[in-house]
Design a protein around this nucleic acid. Sequence first.
DNA 1: AAAGATTGATTATTCAATCTTT
DNA 2: AAAGATTGAATAATCAATCTTT
Lengths: 153, 153
Amino acid sequence: MVSVAAKGDDDGIAAWSAFLRAHAGLVPVIDAELRRTTGLPLTWYDVLLELNAAPGRQLRMQDLGERAVISRTRVSRVVDELVTAGYVCREPNPDDRRSSFATLTDHGRRVFRRAAPRYLDAVRRHFAARIPPEQLRVVRAALDAVLDPPADG
Amino acid sequence: MVSVAAKGDDDGIAAWSAFLRAHAGLVPVIDAELRRTTGLPLTWYDVLLELNAAPGRQLRMQDLGERAVISRTRVSRVVDELVTAGYVCREPNPDDRRSSFATLTDHGRRVFRRAAPRYLDAVRRHFAARIPPEQLRVVRAALDAVLDPPADG
DNA sequence: AAAGATTGATTATTCAATCTTT
DNA sequence: AAAGATTGAATAATCAATCTTT
């Protein structure tokens, strides 16, 4: 026997391929819909969401980079844009003057709350509604597991 | 009752969030590993894979754009790079002179075949091995379903 | 020196206009 | 005019160097 491509490998690569294709197909669609219906790009929405959920509606840039789906370097640029738009302001951190907070403004909060139902609806229609409920829970568990550092790979 | 946020909505948004995070976390890692161990960026690998699987190891640019996880416009640029690297060549389509084929060269084929095991191994370690086998099949089915146009959204 | 953050330069990706052939 | 493809211009994202504070 020259090569034994185990069945599990096929399932793994097929799932990976579906994962890449689903992302490439879905994210641009949902981003475009969000821009059209709310004026917010997905990246902005994501940052506003994390700030809105944070205590005092503010986060250090570092922490924002860890929570939002956005690279650490990118955070500075996006927060610049959000400050210009009036949705966020920067505030000094009295405990450590190296760092600063990004804080959601009242205006930013209103814009976020108005956008949230549109976002949830888009995700539901394009993603969640196409997957049986019991599979949704499996997908979540599986993709969460991928990011943990469970021992070794 | 002011608002009924059904449990299913929560599962949907949680799965979506896990989906975005897994992609943002995993793709750069696998891309970096592939570049390091094989010299091929993920985008190149993906294009070489589709060409290698195609009849005659060639595809029209249009078809390549549909199969590979890459936007139609991007195809021209990436094929340029692959031609420069000597992995692919362009050939005229005798049946329709508007279009042209991207064809895998022998050298490109050798490079792809040498890279394939490294890629499969990276996907296995970073992705598949962290998900129970029975969940892998569910993930695949779920994410495939998301891209079909099943009736309406 | 290390941590937190920003910024200039580079690279990657998309958008819109263009060119050729059907 | 529409289809197939490419290209210049504009946007987005990353990398490496920098600056300030600890």
